[in-house]
Design a protein around this nucleic acid. Sequence first.
RNA 1: GGGAUCGUGGGGUAGCUUGGUAACCUUCGGGCCUUGGGUGCCCGUCCCCUCGGUUCAAAUCCGAGCGAUCCCA
Length: 504
Amino acid sequence: MPATNHPSGSLLAPWATTHLMSGEQELGITESKEHSPGEWYAEVVQKAGLADYAPMGGFIVTRPRGYAIWERIQNNLDGWFKDTGVQNAYFPLFIPESYLEKEKDVVEGFDPEVAWVTHGGHDELEERLAVRPTSESIIAPFMAQWTRSHRDLPMRLNQWCSVVRWEATETKPFFRTKEFLWQEGHTAHADEDGAWEETMTRLDQYARLYEEVMAMPPLKGRKPPHDKFPGAHTTTTIETLMPDGKSVQAATSHYLGTSFGEAFDITYADADEEENTAHTTSWGLSWRAMGALIMTHSDDQGLVLPPALAPDQVVVVPIWQEDNQEEVVDYAADLAAELDEAGVRVELDDREHRNPGFKYNEHELHGVPLRVEIGPHEVEDGEATLVHRPDGDTETVDRDGIADTVTEHLDTVHAKLYADAEETLEGEIREAESREEILGTIGQHGGYVKCGWCGDEDCEEPIKEAIAAEIVMVPLNRDEEPIHDDCAICGEEAEETAYFAKSY
RNA sequence: GGGAUCGUGGGGUAGCUUGGUAACCUUCGGGCCUUGGGUGCCCGUCCCCUCGGUUCAAAUCCGAGCGAUCCCA
């Protein structure tokens, strides 16, 4: 493939840099996922029509096809939240500085990346307003007001919104943007048990989202103490492994203990009329999940989506000759209508002036999970040809019962995607028993490396410094015996098992 | 935070060294053609990232800014 858009192209022989003689390359993906994942990712996002870069650095415009994926993620999660006692609400975009300051740890945690509003019209504000980097500090005071007695608990609020974190880092659409979409849930409970159960419920729902909707195997764990959310007692995490060997924090939930209850005076009278401080939690999932999704399944043909998230699950492509156009298109339209009635999201691509090959390529680029090809042969035999997006597997099936057949094939596509990702993950969790072995293993293979860890942040430092890998998680269960007796770095007694990985 | 590479119609590129009418492929719009893996033809719309400097003259040379991608911390 000509490296026409690589800077290094100019160093190649002249014949290697002559421009393309056919238009094939520019229409689809020209970068290799394996060899230049960064550029490949940017190209997939743009050419699949998910997002464009905004005129301000660090911001993106989410296009309809991208937003449709986000809406499906939202709908799945939101339904589960509501089934488990959560109510949606909405709090202001701006937070007064005095509010933000109420929880010292949170202020310090976000201080360098808060965007401030200092003027209203032409007048300077008396008190500047933070653009929310997260909403604890405006939600908690209201939860305090609304919490009088144990009968008000548990209180579970969630909001879908965007937040802004003014990091100076470079943009990677959905992975790293200054403004991003997410949901943040905030709950208050009478006691630790209730709050802890809440923390786990949400973590499990996130794991379920990854498995059942996104076709990605999640790892559930806990962040090491030095990487907890500011002020949290425990921060849990869902980690997912990208094909380039880096881990993504794909969702998180926090048990906050009573620290927020104390800072914001979230108290209640219990059954004995005693005043108590509530235990709180918070939990969130952002559109970074979409970034992880794109990275995990997509390929050099373009976007690959699991059926549960695909805006179009099936595309029907009619293939006709001059003398049979009407029969073929009628047959295809009828089949599409039947799928539509059965609740399948189906598109009939009966555009003229575009030959079938063009359509195949375009729908592959856009990530449509299943293609149905209808030509004279299918019409004559009362059949349909189904092609799976992830691997091109082709099967000719009976026209009768097409809705059930298609549904089965969509399930198969999901299962294939999951199985592929799971296989990758399983091979990428390794063990190490020394500093050198950690460095060597991650350096050579990427992925996760499990090792014994004494619990001291200082022991993470040499790994971070040498290869920018860090402890992305430790086991959820605090009582779990460490994998090795000794800390792989300092040799002291190991307290738990650390999972080292490079991360996004 | 440090370094590297880059910025020309919607996408991909040529032109820059040696300053002088911006060219090609594709997309897009209109017309013709009509299909088992990016079909062919005709017509049309749309460009030199921004600001400053040098110059009779800047896509080209110089400076700054903005933006993107990659590598390192």
